[in-house]
Amino acid sequence: MATHQGRRPADPTGTGGPPAWLPGVGAAGAAALLAWAIHTAVPAIPLLTASVALGILVAQLPSARGALTGTLAPGLSLAAKKFMRLGIVLLGLKLSLVDIAHLGWISIVTVVAVLVITFVATLWLGRLFGLPGHQPLLIATGFSICGASAIGAMSHVVKSKDEETATPVALVTLCGTLAIAVLPLLWHPLGLNSLQFGHWVGASVHDVGQVVATAQIAGSAALAVAIVVKLTRVLMLAPMVAITSVVMRKREGAPTAGGKQPPIVPLFVAGFIFAVLVRTFVPLPASVTDAADTVQTALLAMALFGLGTAVRLGQLVRTGWRALLVALLSWTLIAALGWGAVQLG
């Protein structure tokens, strides 16, 4: 399992003391509670956005860096990897294929088209601007599908390092937060009614929480449309990750002695698909779905705090201007395409 840059791995000797991951997981849990408190006090700030922001803020404190790369490292890495995957599995329980079918085939096709065009164009832009490593793929995934959660899922498949994943997470959080402020200002000037605005938000804003924060100002009907459209994009996480996994297998070729290829469908993606099918065909009581939503939110909040602690803003400002430009171009593109999809619908 990859660790944060410079972090020590968990002590494998087993001295009988508390698990090495406990301090970091505890810190991530405390940060998730603080993010929940911030969201409760200011509902316009999505809980997951607050979690990433807290991680980024802590990472900039010189007094905290020793702990982040030492005592807290194993637990933060565990949260950023394992908790992210578990949260994505539970995210599937938000999705009902019946609700998505109610959008109609034209809306579904346009939502998928916007996603694919944004993904391909952002990947091309990332490579055009010479972004290093897996950054073009991770930025394309986050901006086209479902924000930081999608980046976490894709990073598992391509086995990117935490610090390589951190920049796309920071950028998708920044642009999603900008969307909360900017899109409502364009609602009436663009001549959209409330339902069209909800569709636009669902088709173009990255994280589910950011979609809720943006669309709710237009009323409950707009919010409902935005969530269904957004979850249609989330559903595309499974095939996009699976396709990437197949490509990775072909690139790596036959496994070497003692090695193995990545699975065609990662286990957590299979779990996500299973959760979608359960939600679609099994009548789950509200208490079960509410509990699953709470656990899912907590897991993703802890995971995103862990990823946020790998961001170094100073380094991002010095070397990440190209990534920022790609992110802003991608954000503008998906907003424009989403608006066009609304006109077609």
Rank of each mutant, 00 (worst) to 15 (best):
T3Q: 14
P9Y: 01
G14L: 07
A20F: 01
P23F: 04
G29S: 11
A32F: 09
A37M: 07
H39Y: 03
T40K: 07
I45K: 06
A50Y: 05
P62T: 02
P62D: 10
R65A: 05
A73I: 01
P74W: 06
K82L: 03
K94S: 14
S96A: 02
V98D: 13
A101R: 12
G104H: 00
A113Q: 04
L125P: 00
G130K: 09
G133C: 00
H134L: 00
L137T: 13
A148H: 03
M154R: 07
V157N: 06
L171A: 08
L171S: 12
T177I: 04
A181M: 04
L183K: 03
W187P: 09
H188A: 14
P189T: 03
N193L: 09
N193K: 09
F197P: 05
V201P: 06
H206C: 07
H206D: 12
V211P: 03
A213V: 12
S220E: 14
A221M: 12
T232S: 14
L235T: 15
L237S: 08
L237F: 06
T244E: 09
T244Q: 14
R249A: 10
G258M: 11
G258F: 04
G259R: 10
Q261F: 09
V265M: 13
A270K: 13
G271V: 02
L277T: 01
V278E: 01
R279H: 06
V282R: 12
T289C: 09
D290N: 12
A291I: 11
V295K: 07
A298M: 12
A298G: 02
L300V: 14
L304G: 04
L304Q: 03
A310P: 04
R322P: 05
A323C: 06
L324G: 14
A327I: 02
G338E: 02
